[in-house]
Amino acid sequence: MARPRVTAKSKIFRIEIVLVDVEPTVRRVIEVPGEASLAALHEVLQESMGWTNSHLHEFEVDHARYGPLDPDADEDLLDGARTKLFRVLAAGDDAGYVYDFGDNWHHLLVVEAVSVPEPGVRYPRCVDGQGACPPENVGGTFGYPKFLDALADPDHADHADRVEWWGSDRFDPHHFDLDATNQALARLAWTPLSGSSSTSRS
């Protein structure tokens, strides 16, 4: 399937994403074309945060809910695949994004700016971030700090169980690798606006 194309008419949304009620802070700043659907934005969020896209998700924008449609789901859910980013958000707006209705990870999205695309730059891309994504199925904001405490303390009653579950006694909650994040996003790259830029990424 042909890649979507960034054009001179495209608008680039710079969006800050913060994982709510998680310490240390898990934060990303991404840039994505406004013509992207919310379903496509979901994929960008998964790759930029470090999730594995193994669970359901939902956006909330101005009290409306968007996600993948399911005949058995509630009728109030709107189709994220048919909803373009630029039609529901603008600079200064915010939105909610929930991933995994079991662990219930809440993300706050804030549109920091809307700008014109840079020639040669591959979007979507991540331009800033901090903190490691929690492991999948760790128990949400309640289980994550318990996981960190148990893993870091060999004398903790749950240390051995946590090490066995995780497969290691190593996990750095402060770790963030911008280059690795953009490598993960490369599979979602749109064809860039023609031209060159000193800030372009391969």
Rank of each mutant, 00 (worst) to 15 (best):
R201L: 14
D128H: 02
D153S: 08
A36M: 13
L19V: 10
D161H: 08
H156S: 06
M49P: 02
P173Y: 09
A8E: 14
A40N: 06
H106C: 04
V163S: 05
P124Y: 11
W51L: 07
V44L: 05
L38I: 13
R27L: 13
N182T: 10
E112M: 09
E164H: 09
D21L: 08
A81D: 14
V44H: 03
D70H: 10
V163M: 04
R201M: 08
V29K: 01
T191L: 12
A40I: 01
E43I: 01
Y99F: 15
H42E: 02
A186I: 02
S197K: 05
A95H: 04
V26T: 13
D76F: 11
R201C: 00
L109D: 05
E164I: 02
G143E: 07
L56K: 03
L45I: 15
A184Q: 11
S194R: 00
A150H: 01
V44S: 03
E16L: 12
H175W: 10
L185T: 10
V20L: 02
P117F: 08
C133N: 06
G143R: 01
A90R: 14
D76H: 10
Y97L: 08
P33N: 10
S200V: 01
E75V: 13
F101S: 07
D100Y: 10
Y97R: 08
A189K: 00
P154I: 11
E35H: 09
H159M: 08
V88W: 05
G67P: 15
L56W: 03
K146M: 14
D149N: 09
N104V: 05
V61K: 01
L188H: 02
V6R: 00
L188Y: 06
P117C: 08
P33R: 03
Y66D: 07
V18I: 15
A39E: 14
A160Y: 02
V32N: 00
E164R: 13
T52W: 13
E112I: 11
D158Q: 04
L77V: 15
R27A: 09
P24A: 05
L185C: 09
F142S: 11
G195W: 03
V114F: 11
S54T: 13
H63A: 15
L188T: 02
L193K: 00
V138D: 01
T7D: 06
R187S: 15
C133L: 11
T191F: 06
N104M: 13
R82K: 15
G129R: 00
E75D: 15
D74M: 08
H174E: 12
R170I: 13
L19D: 05
P173W: 09
G67I: 12
P134R: 05
A186E: 14
Q130M: 11
V26S: 07
G167Y: 01
D100Q: 03
I30M: 06
A81G: 15
Y66H: 08
E118P: 03
P124I: 14
